[in-house]
Write a protein that binds this DNA or RNA. Sequence first.
DNA 1: CACTCCCGCCAATTA
DNA 2: TAATTGGCGGGAGTG
Length: 881
Amino acid sequence: ENIYDRSRMAPKTPIKNEPIDLSKQKGCTPERSPITPVKIIDRPQPDPWTPTTNLKILVSAASPDMRDREKKKELFRPIENSEQSDTPDSLQYGIVDDSTVDEFEKQRPSRKQKSLGLLCQKFLARYPNYPLSTEKTTISLDEVASILGVERRRIYDIVNVLESLQLVSRVAKNQYSWHGRHNLSQTLKMLQEAGELQYGELMTSQHKEQDLEYKFGERKKETIPDSQDRPLLDFSEPDCTSASANSRKDKSLRIMSQKFVMLFLVSKTKIVTLDIAAKILIEETQDTVDHSKFKTKVRRLYDIANVLTSLGLIKKVHVTEERGRKPAFKWIGPVEFPEKTDELRGHSPTSDPLPETQRGACAQYQTSATGKQRFTRHASFNSAQPCEATGRKVSSEPNSPRQERQDENCSKMINLAAICRQKIEEDTGSAKNSNISLPFSLLPVPGDSDFCVNPLPQAVFPVVQADVPSFSLPNGISSQASHPSTPAASKTENGKPTLVPSQPFLCFPSSSLFMLCGGLQENNLSERLPTAGDLGSRSAEAQAAVPPTGCQKRSSHKCSSPSAPADDEEPAAKKQTLEHNDLPLSLVVPKKPSESPKAESSPGSGCSAAVHLETNSLDLPSPAAPEVANKESTKPLDCQEQEKQSQNKDPDEPPPGNEHISKENANQPFQPQYIYVQPTTGLSSFNFLFSANQAPGAISLAANQMPSLSVPCVMVPSAALASFPLVCSPSFTSPLSSVPDGSFSAAASTTFSMSSLASTTPVFISTTAVVTPKVSPAPSVDPQQPAPPTLHLSPVLTRSCSAVKLDSPVCMGHPVTLLKLQQPSSAPLTPKSIRPAHNEAFFKTPGSLGDPVAWKKNEGNQTRNASSVQRRLEISSTSPD
DNA sequence: CACTCCCGCCAATTA
DNA sequence: TAATTGGCGGGAGTG
């Protein structure tokens, strides 16, 4: 039809809205020019658009007659067509096909004609994708409704979704302002980040997570109990958000839309099935499982999907799973978001959008300054991540409640994500109802505080430095209590005091492995704002010490240096991967493959990432190769173990996540402080500790909330270890913490033994700083040599680190019960801090990004000294204690 | 029959 | 209180 119309359209179209527009004030962009002379004709019946039609419509609106929908429909159709023709831009994808029907049908408006998707297209056609910054177009709901000939209710459906992506914002009662897609990339990025946090976990192991959740969550739950336990109401949700208003309503469409988008962004495959999405969303809500609810959710998802489809962000596909073919949607929008500005920084509200031309090319990707204003707000939002919502609301302007809502929403979203993943898992697994997830989800709220942890990392740095000099292991150990550093850590947690302060251990989901690296920053989270307060001073220190924290670093790192290329590649790879999988849902399916997503995905990307990191920060490239090797080896192991984890699928890797990681890595200096591998199941499987020396703070971070952890040791699954070199630092054992010591030592010994068993891989336990390059993989290092003057890392370490990261996901603690090691201490500080910049610690989770999302992030930051690290890592090959 | 999802009642929120 | 928003689910259109 379109085509058909077009030919004629010219004449016809003219009208559309123009009159209206004019009257209205929309800022319509000039682009679309309006008008054409009119013509009429052709279809007498429907009466295509003509200028008059508008009038008619309006009139009809007024009159009851209007009601004839059919007529209207007919009328509208033409409109549609015309519009499309006019503004092809809005839709690229082939809507046309559908419409192809032609005029014949015009008459018969079948349901399709009335579809929300079509309506949305029409709606979008009215406004430029990239409006000039200067012009502000306002949208009057009434007008639009009348113009488009639909009830207002329908317009709300569209606008709500658009609002969730910030294409529009509500300014007043019946008024919305059109922003276009300038901010879209940022919005998506934010959503992606938020999604990773929450959903990322999904990817990883579920079970473990749960454990963690419990622990963490316990406290939180307490606060939140309502929601889960009782569905009380809507409240439940709100609770999460914490304060602010939670209008009950918020929940729906807008949030649902964001979550839905998050799922896509987090998903490797970029395909999300409706049922999964529905489940996830429901969970959030927490409702009981109702079947009816499910149906309702699905209905809404269709509504959202229609709008997103109109935006060209997704398309409908079918995935065939075990059970059969299921409807699903595939993300066809931008996947990567460029740097973005680092949000925070300085953007002032500059504002001008890029010229469209540029945009066209880059459009999505560009992060440039467009739309800062909002972003700022959002940024907070993003950064806030997990709980952000609670506390933060950056926006100064209270204006519209809606904004607040969004913030809240974000937080909610985050929470949701956590839930979702669980759910997903469950779903995949079979069971359905899980309420369990809740805790976690809930956490977020409280979690915020937890999240706040992030700051820690920063803090850490500084601390480290301070310590560095001294950096004796013991110090680290003492860390918990003692040094300032310690306190810092604790604080960071502050919100949570830690579950167990004393405890040395953390539990992690079995499946995953975690690596802790010294100096990690969490880059990603960088956004998170560290809490200003806590961090504040520290942060300052940190900054001083390490200039590069946060965003800046990253970006710079990435860009600069060799790493860059690598980065680029990675993404590409990722993309590819993504594309490949159409069918499977990334989220859901998992099953087999397993395991550590990291390994999987990463080999390529991961490696590169790792490398980058090294190179960048360390400048030690060599390790990479070895690392890779290690990784691979590890992977298998993981896989085995992972059986349980059904979820993580290799394939799935979160592309984005990886990317992020890589970035992070780059930033970071990397040395992993600890490596943790989780045994899949039981203890037996893994076990290793590494003593890492870390600054306590770092540890704590990692833990994420967990109690403070300074862990001297890490348990790693033997297998995993085998794959990579382990390092232990004996020093720790010593008494850092009084308690831990004993246990610790024991643990250590045990672990090692295990490793030995496993031992294909050499394990090293370093008592101190020995470096053994030996690590199987390691070799390459030499050349590059880490020689990290600054860092001190031994090559080995670096390698190991990198390897670790890549490979396995690290799991931090396991079930405590099992190991319960105590970690004595924290880690010693890292002397290295010398290099401020580099000192980031990164904490990567393997696989997807972090299942333990929070953890990672939190952790991210630690910094470690190379020395400390080295110690840990380095070791004599032999085990033993 | 299953999948979509339009339609509009009516409650929650706002003005 | 009236108007605006928007949750929700019946049930119809489509394949």
